[in-house]
Write a protein that binds this DNA or RNA. Structure first.
Lengths: 351, 351
DNA sequence: CTAAATATGCTCTTTTCGAGCATATATGGA
DNA sequence: TCCATATATGCTCGAAAAGAGCATATTTAG
């Protein structure tokens, strides 16, 4: 929210200067967890950095790098996060922004977690796709493994029509549980809007809403794990992506939503790119994140016209065709326009 | 983030069913504070609900409704917030969304606050401008009293050229304190971009950035209170809006930023409007929030064309001219378009 | 009855967006 | 070597949206 301009930011000053280890009876940090959804694009595949869950635990699901926030050790939430990520994966975070603070939902079921966090503060970090060097732990996994229905790069993913749509339709038929306040939108409408059913347009930013809908409908593995009412009723519940521990998949969904939204009005794609790149590579990266294919010539016009990039003068050969000019991010746009970004709008991809 | 569709939302089910009062040695909620920036528009004036600070305390600054989060009492963050607002002001919150989680900055200086919160979770709530009925405590105060430089309804506010610009220019001349990582944008550029100096366009959404800049420059009262380096150096520090306790003004700034941004792509204005209204009233409300004046005819076209409203059939006379048609919010837009909002773009209001 | 104020419909121009055509320059195989 | 093919890149055209102004309708205030 407040870091659009500086990009890399907020050093960790006088580290833990005021952190004597005395007052131990008071442990105020207990209950505040920090989670990082670290995103990169590797070989046109958007990936997130995850740590394999404890293989002894049932399920052995993945987790995002996380840890408790201790204000005696870290002056800011962000520095605490950076320290945890560094210790758990060896990675030094670049760009990071806060996402959302969740009150843990499925915390009863988390036997393997040491700290019973009351709230977890999710962060989104964007970084370049460095292979595995610098990584002491953790692995990059395509975010579409957790959310296969979000991958529209090869058209509408089959899983929607085959596994999701019929079950959501069935779920919409069942009456909602009696709660004092009904949600103001009916189940059927929510399903239609979230998943672009019945001719409704697909909105690539509704990643979180879609996952929450699947969770509520008892179709996500996490819903079963948490003992959600209705989750056990499915006799033929399909596998809808890899589950994660605790509410980490929800945090990742929020991260994808935010990335997809923000890429359009802030020049954050360049956090994912190497210093020099061709416009085609840039386009492929945007498409990896957003899904639908963009018109190449218009993409060029857009990006160049907005002053987001400048040619380096070099060309990249071996592209299988005419050599492509290399470009770099023009940092000065930040000083010029109020909200520069890759203003792409998806083609009218109905259903 | 995840409540665009439902508007009013998330009932509080089985209230504190799993909250035995036994485990008392562990007090995990200590350190998590909830703050609400409750916004309405009253007589074309955007207002926030504040509680007068303790008049005995030095300064007696205003506070936003707030209180600690206790997971044993409240299942969700939001229900906890609603309870606190209800108890402190008597108001029942309608639309609410989470804003940001701050690690308290000026917490050393807060003598009057009971709970030393480590993090405070800010919420934005939008409500209709009900006079004072239903309010047991607190008062509605124009948000421009806290941020006078944000009020562009009568053109560029004088306070910028008179009080802010010269001091920020002076501050930009001084070298920044030695930190390991320099912020990647120079002070002068930040000031120019934030406050639209030297012909740079004014971006009404940068409310938080502007306040943080003033705080860093030691020009906000809170910076003095917190003993920020450099704050005491000003010999002629002007009064730049009313201060608030703790970091509440920062939270309010975040709330204004979010409101200004969101009004453009989600139909949240209608949370601020009575059930029936004229298009001119709607426009005035939007302008109260965003600042610059909009072209009336185009505003009509925009709002009607987007299907955001429908005529009630009635007219409102006594408007001082031809009677205006009354409209109401067309809730069905939520079921139709992916991201409906009052897509106004400010006129090219340079400096 | 008239001036002033507001409401509302319509047009006109400029910009932006989506889409396609045409051309340039490389690689790789016949 | 030459040609098919793939990619890069410049340019144009039409549709849609946005910005701005004119004209007319219908009130209230005096």
């Amino acid at each position: 929210m407040n870091m659009e301009l500086s990009g890399r930011r907020k050093p960790t000053p006088e580290k833990s200067q005021l952190a004597p280890e005395d007052d131990h009876e008071l442990e105020p940090s207990l209950g505040i967890g920090l989670n990082a959804a670290i995103v990169a694009v590797s070989d046109n595949e958007p990936v997130a950095l995850v740590v394999r869950g404890d293989p002894d635990a049932i399920g052995a699901t993945d987790v995002l790098p996380f840890g408790p926030f201790n204000p005696r050790e870290h002056r800011t939430l962000e520095s605490g996060l950076r320290a945890w990520v560094q210790s758990q994966t060896g990675l030094d975070l670049g760009y990071a922004e806060q996402l959302y603070t969740f009150a843990d939902r499925g915390r009863h079921a988390d036997a393997g977690v040491a700290t019973p966090n009351i709230v977890s503060i999710g962060y989104l970090a964007l970084t370049q796709a460095v292979g595995h060097h610098g990584l002491t732990n953790g692995l990059w996994r395509s975010w579409y493994q957790y959310f296969p229905w979000e991958d529209w790069r090869r058209g509408r993913p089959e899983i929607i029509a085959r596994d999701i749509e019929p079950r959501l339709k069935a779920w919409a038929e069942k009456p909602a549980l009696a709660t004092s306040t009904q949600p103001s939108i009916a189940r059927g409408d929510r399903a239609r809007i979230c998943f672009g059913l019945d001719g409704t347009a697909w909105d690539e930013e509704k990643v979180l809403e879609r996952f929450e809908l699947l969770y509520e409908a008892g179709l996500a593995d996490e819903a079963v794990r948490d003992g959600r009412p209705g989750a056990a009723e499915w006799t033929d519940r399909p596998k809808l992506g890899l589950p994660m521990q605790s509410d980490h998949r929800r945090i990742l969904a929020t991260a994808i939503s935010r990335t997809r939204a923000k890429i359009k009005y802030r020049p954050v794609v360049f956090e994912l790119m190497p210093d020099e790149f061709t416009l085609y590579e840039l386009q492929k990266t945007v498409e990896a994140i957003l899904g639908p294919h963009l018109h190449k010539q218009n993409f060029r016009r857009l990006v160049e016209g907005a002053g987001l990039v400048e040619p380096t003068g070099e060309v990249k050969t071996r592209t299988g065709g005419r050599p492509a000019k290399l470009f770099r991010f023009r940092r000065e746009v930040l000083l010029e326009r109020p909200a520069p970004g890759v203003r792409v709008s998806a083609p009218p991809s109905r259903s």
